[in-house]
Computed example of a mutant assay.
Amino acid sequence: MDVLLKEKKNQILYLTLNRPEKLNAFSMELTSSLITALKEAEADDDVKVIILTGAGKSFCAGGDVSSMGSRRDPATAIASMQNTSKVTKTILQLDKYVISAVHGYAAGAGFSLALASDFIIADQHARFVSSFKNIGLVPDLGLIKLLSERVSLPIAKEWISSAKIVSAEEAYAERVINRIATKDLLEVATEFAQFIVDGPPLANKFVKYMLNNASDFSHEASIMQENIIQTLMFQTEDAKEGVRAFAEKRSPDFKGK
C-alpha cells in the first residue's frame, strides 16, 4: 500500500497521507515520500498549489509512539528527528503555497505539519493538540515557533504545557486556521485554493518568502527587499499580462513567467 497518495487536477496537487491504521502517523517511508512529492511539485509548472490531507479518521497523529522506544540512543534519535523535521522545513521553504485540509486530529507533529502550511482549512470536528507533554517530550518539527507566530505567547504556553485539545472553533477564533468547512472538506479546500490557481505564481512565490522571513528584517531592510523584488517583477510576462488585462477589463492569464 502506498503511504502517500497523489492526484493532480486543475493545477492542484492533492497529497493524501495514507497510513489510516496509524492515524497517518509519520514513518520513515511516509516522511521520505512526502518530501519527495513536495520537491517534485515545486519543479512541476503544472502545479500551482498543494492540498495536503489524510486518509481515514484523522489528518495526522504525529510521531508513531509505538516506535519511539527504539530511539533511546541519542545519535539514532537526533538522526531520526533531523530527517522527519525536513518535512516542515520543505513546506516552509517551498516556492508554492501549501494548504492543509484537516479532519479528525492534527496531533503532536501532525499539528506542526498543519502549522507549517501556508493555510489551514479544517472541518467542524477537527481537533488540534500539542500532545508531547503526555509522553514527557517537548514539541518538535518547528511547532514552538510556528504556533507562537500565530497565537499570543500565553496561549501558546497554555496549549503546549496543558496538551489542550483545541476545537476547530477555538482555533479559528485564535486565527490559527483560515476556514471551517461546513460541507465536504476537500471541496472547501479546493474552492479556497482557486485564488492561488488564478493568481500570479511568481508573485505568490516572493510573497510567501517575504512573509515567512519578515521577522528577520528591519522595516528599512524589508522595504529595500520589496523594492528590489518589485523592480524584477515589473520585467515579467505576468506583470505585463496583468497590465494588459486591467486595460482590457478581463481576468489575467498568468503563466508564471
Rank of each mutant, 00 (worst) to 15 (best):
R175H: 15
L17A: 05
S33R: 15
E237H: 03
G256R: 01
D2R: 10
S32M: 08
A116I: 04
L146K: 10
F111C: 04
S131A: 12
L94W: 08
V49T: 09
S27I: 02
W159A: 08
K8T: 11
V188N: 03
V243E: 04
N18G: 06
S80D: 12
G142Q: 06
I50F: 09
A25D: 02
F26C: 01
C60S: 14
G62P: 04
Q11N: 15
T84K: 15
A55H: 02
R127Y: 03
S161E: 15
D2V: 10
Y172H: 15
F132K: 09
A114G: 07
T36R: 15
G69L: 12
D45S: 08
F26V: 00
A189N: 05
S148D: 14
D198K: 14
L153E: 14
A203L: 08
T236I: 04
N213I: 00
E21A: 11
F59G: 07
C60I: 01
M233N: 00
D45I: 05
A61W: 00
Q124N: 12
K6N: 08
I99L: 02
F26P: 01
V87A: 12
R72Y: 12
F206P: 01
K89G: 11
T53D: 13
G199R: 00
P201K: 02
K96G: 01
V207N: 05
T88S: 13
K240W: 00
L92P: 10
E7N: 15
E29A: 14
E149F: 08
D198V: 08
T76M: 12
T88C: 13
P154H: 06
M233C: 06
F26N: 05
V166L: 14
L185D: 06
E226V: 08
G136F: 11
D95L: 01
L30R: 12
K145P: 02
D123Q: 09
D140P: 07
E42K: 06
L38Q: 10
G242I: 00
I180Y: 10
E29S: 14
E7S: 14
R244G: 05
E149Y: 14
F246Q: 14
L5I: 08
I135Y: 12
S27H: 07
V47T: 14
N204K: 07
S117R: 11
K145Q: 09
Y14P: 06
F132P: 03
A107W: 02
T53L: 09
C60W: 02
F195R: 13
I177N: 07
L94V: 03
G104L: 03
I160P: 05
A203N: 03
S66A: 10
F195A: 13
N212F: 00
S67M: 13
A77V: 06
N212T: 01
A37N: 07
L92I: 11
N18W: 00
A109F: 00
L92S: 13
A114F: 03
A156I: 02
A247D: 12
